Computed example of a mutant assay.
Amino acid sequence: MVSGNLGSLHYILDHVYAAFVHRTKLSTPFFSRGWGGNKLDLLETMIQQLFPDLGKIQKIPPTSIQPRWRTVWETKSSCLREGTFQTPCDEQLMNALPPESHTARVAFLFPKSVPPQKMACVVHLAGTGDHTFDRRLRLGGPLLKQNIATMVLESPFYGKRRPILQRGSKLLCVSDLLLLGRSTIEESRSLLHWLETEFGFGKTGVCGLSMGGVHAAMVGSLHPRPLAILPFLSPHSAAVAFCEGILKHATAWEALREDAAGQKTSVTLEQVRERMRSVLSLTDVTRFPIPRNPQAAIFVAATDDGYIPKHSVLELQKAWPGSEVRWVIGGHVSSFILHNDVFRKAITDSLDRLEWREPSSMMKD
């Protein structure tokens, strides 16, 4: 067990990091341009209408994609490719997304000279602030020795997909957060479908850290085939992160109040916070279907996480019978830095809980 003082130190580190990154004038806060107007209304309606049909979505094959690949480097034992494809979102979502986010970008690191049916691949989704492929490739790289490939998706609103007016990771509107999540889910499901049907991987999975872990859980819930599901340092809902955790100090509450006051007089900050909780309840993964194989879901959580309270992790574990939580000693920031080996072990253990599939075809160059 960790001593109380050391535990507090990890928690304090989260707050010190957040004070520097989120509470200085170095960057704008989240949602500085308000709720998103008609876009938010559209997304709320779309998502609310989807909830009764999520079980049906779980049974429907994802949209097929055909990424265009280029080889970045290649050795005798492995290869790194980068690819692009048009986001498979429907017309309404495409119109709501910024033009910069219409083209998805992925990196694909895989072992060579191994039959696809004897390989696994995990799709790694971005946490808040992860704009490049590098960190997730470093996490997945050592797994090549165990015949586990890594697919890294660049999130909408991030990296080369970032809107021109957005600075860093700070999304301009609340609607952007819902758009990011919806499009990430669709793109991830299509990538997994491609890995399973075009490349012929025998096992597949999805993982992500923090925000990426929430999306990984959603993808795992909705994918029609059993997956390894690996949410790392993740809440069960974005409402927890922005209304309970440290990110509440990085949110432009006054701008949101002023935006709401333009449509309704005498809006209080408490009413704004309640509105945020209501909107972000749409990201509550406990409202999603139980995955095809919940025993292959492993959550890794930190004992002293200033961003993600413990109860949030346990809520999703309770909703998915047979899933597992593994605790690491640390906070959000320190665990992100120090516990990559624990994350990798969770990936291999989760994949071991899946049956091998027969491939339908090999990858087409």
Results as ranks from 00 to 15, higher is better:
residue 338 L to A: 10
residue 199 F to N: 05
residue 185 I to V: 15
residue 33 R to T: 03
residue 60 I to E: 14
residue 314 L to M: 11
residue 337 I to W: 12
residue 39 K to R: 10
residue 144 L to N: 04
residue 319 A to M: 11
residue 72 V to R: 14
residue 310 K to Q: 10
residue 335 S to E: 03
residue 49 Q to T: 07
residue 114 V to F: 07
residue 129 G to I: 02
residue 239 A to M: 00
residue 253 W to T: 13
residue 311 H to D: 09
residue 130 D to T: 00
residue 194 W to E: 11
residue 254 E to I: 07
residue 356 W to D: 09
residue 341 D to M: 06
residue 85 F to H: 07
residue 348 T to D: 13
residue 180 L to N: 03
residue 89 C to R: 01
residue 331 G to K: 06
residue 201 F to V: 08
residue 208 G to C: 00
residue 330 G to W: 08
residue 231 P to E: 04
residue 318 K to Q: 15
residue 253 W to S: 13
residue 353 R to G: 15
residue 268 T to S: 15
residue 235 P to N: 04
residue 129 G to P: 08
residue 339 H to D: 05
residue 6 L to R: 11
residue 326 R to V: 15
residue 111 P to L: 08
residue 186 E to D: 13
residue 81 R to D: 10
residue 189 R to M: 14
residue 212 G to I: 00
residue 350 S to L: 13
residue 76 K to R: 05
residue 108 F to K: 01
residue 49 Q to G: 02
residue 357 R to Q: 14
residue 332 H to V: 09
residue 361 S to E: 03
residue 277 R to T: 07
residue 291 P to E: 14
residue 72 V to G: 08
residue 218 M to Y: 02
residue 178 L to H: 09
residue 102 H to G: 00
residue 365 D to S: 09
residue 91 E to T: 09
residue 186 E to F: 13
residue 107 A to E: 06
residue 174 V to E: 04
residue 351 L to E: 07
residue 328 V to W: 10
residue 24 T to L: 13
residue 56 K to R: 14
residue 53 D to A: 10
residue 168 G to M: 01
residue 264 K to R: 10
residue 166 Q to D: 11
residue 349 D to H: 13
residue 173 C to F: 13
residue 215 H to W: 07
residue 154 E to Y: 02
residue 97 L to C: 05
residue 185 I to S: 06
residue 239 A to H: 00
residue 282 L to T: 02
residue 85 F to V: 05
residue 346 A to W: 14
residue 186 E to P: 01
residue 190 S to Y: 03
residue 355 E to A: 14
residue 7 G to N: 03
residue 94 M to A: 12
residue 290 I to Q: 05
residue 136 R to H: 10
residue 203 K to T: 08
residue 59 K to D: 11
residue 290 I to Y: 01
residue 58 Q to W: 08
residue 257 R to A: 07
residue 7 G to M: 00
residue 41 D to W: 10
residue 293 N to Y: 12
residue 88 P to S: 11
residue 113 S to H: 15
residue 190 S to F: 00
residue 156 P to F: 01
residue 158 Y to E: 03
residue 132 T to E: 06
residue 67 P to C: 04
residue 106 V to D: 06
residue 191 L to T: 12
residue 300 V to L: 14
residue 305 D to A: 06
residue 160 K to F: 04
residue 195 L to D: 09
residue 109 L to W: 08
residue 164 I to F: 09
residue 318 K to R: 15
residue 221 S to R: 11
residue 339 H to A: 02
residue 328 V to P: 09
residue 223 H to Q: 09
residue 254 E to W: 06
residue 78 S to W: 05
residue 80 L to G: 04
residue 3 S to A: 12
residue 289 P to V: 08
residue 137 L to T: 01
residue 100 E to K: 03
residue 117 Q to W: 08
residue 272 V to D: 01
residue 158 Y to D: 04
residue 74 E to W: 00
residue 71 T to H: 01
residue 94 M to F: 10
residue 254 E to D: 13
residue 307 Y to A: 09
residue 17 Y to Q: 07
residue 303 T to W: 07
residue 218 M to K: 01
residue 23 R to T: 12
residue 90 D to C: 13
residue 30 F to V: 02
residue 319 A to V: 11
residue 307 Y to D: 02
residue 181 G to H: 03
residue 215 H to N: 10
residue 3 S to D: 14
residue 285 V to H: 02
residue 3 S to P: 08
residue 78 S to P: 01
residue 364 K to M: 05
residue 259 D to K: 01
residue 24 T to H: 13
residue 253 W to K: 14
residue 11 Y to E: 05
residue 334 S to Q: 02
residue 244 E to C: 09
residue 47 I to H: 01
residue 26 L to D: 04
residue 27 S to D: 00
residue 206 V to I: 12
residue 50 L to W: 15
residue 32 S to G: 12
